[in-house]
Design a binder for these strands. Structure first.
Lengths: 163, 163
DNA sequence: GGGGCTTAGTTGCGTGTACAAGTACTATAC
DNA sequence: GTATAGTACTTGTACACGCAACTAAGCCCC
């Protein structure tokens, strides 16, 4: 009788989590050192940068990221304080708010992205062949779609309804 | 000229992080509801359970988990308070401390693991075929070993020097 | 058009975390 | 053998996060 403590699925889950946490910490350190942006901020900024008009509703942004709506509110507060994003009211729904990238915010993302791509290459894609990368992408997409179906775009540009 | 914002590597990194975060939040919720253990605690307990004599040096445990030494100290404090683990002095190095699973701690892990395996099956391995699982495992192992070479065992039982 | 119900976002509060400084011990050098 | 450097862990402090409760606005339906 095999000990359930040795189950293979535990290993797989452990590897997934360790890879991700390890990668995050490496990328975060590099980005912080070289661009003065936390990974969290960079993540929010780049998602806005990739969206039409450089803006997204708070709820959409929250769904795409690691944050709860509450966490996003504070994060956006901080980003607004340093002038990288702004809030604007939604004309068609007065409850809603858009987070909009400022010019300075866009400038910072565009500066940070090339550095980030280098880090990515060093810490992630560098150890994988072309075909491994696409294998991994498909496998992870399955998992992501299953555990968090709301978080569609993370590179896959989806069709946003124009605001 | 392709926009660097659309680079494929960003997608891959995003998928990895989203998968892991999504999985963690699903697993954490289930485990909390059904076993009264946070994923953090479960992670610590299971690592001890898989180690010889059900014990590990604080530094080793910290390296294997998501925590810094400081974070681990508090986490172990809390686990000690509820009687799931204990600290014992290291005879050969009086600076060091072992975290040791108590009988109650071991009991709780052994109770939680079967439930956790079911959750794992539902949220992770269920969407993958046998061959996809082993593909994914090898890919992730490469990444994990690259981003966090200290975190060897997460299923791969390594040979510990006997204390 | 005024009750109920839902949704979008924000705030109060407790908890958990990391960073940096501190303590106690070990190892190295001379 | 004693000064110096390094290691293993712990504490002080500050901050970011999630949960739950709240406000405000939209939606429905009679």
């Amino acid at each position: 009788m095999p000990d359930p403590l040795d189950d293979d699925r535990l290993t797989l889950a452990g590897l997934l989590i360790e890879s991700s946490v390890g990668l995050r910490s490496q990328l975060g350190r590099r980005l912080e050192d070289e661009c003065g942006l936390s990974l969290q901020w960079f993540d929010l900024l780049i998602r806005l940068a990739r969206s039409p008009h450089h803006r997204l509703r708070m709820a959409e942004l929250a769904a795409q990221t690691v944050l709860t709506p509450s966490g996003l509110t504070r994060a956006v507060d901080r980003l607004e304080e340093v002038g990288l994003i702004e809030r604007t009211a939604c004309p068609s729904d007065r409850r809603g708010a858009f987070a909009v990238l400022t010019d300075e915010g866009l400038r910072q993302v565009r500066t940070a992205v090339p550095a980030h791509l280098i880090h990515l290459e060093e810490h992630l894609t560098g150890v994988l062949s072309e075909s491994e990368r696409s294998q991994l992408k498909e496998l992870l997409r399955k998992i992501r779609d299953h555990v968090n179906p709301d978080a569609r775009p993370s590179g896959e540009l989806r069709q946003f309804p124009q605001p």
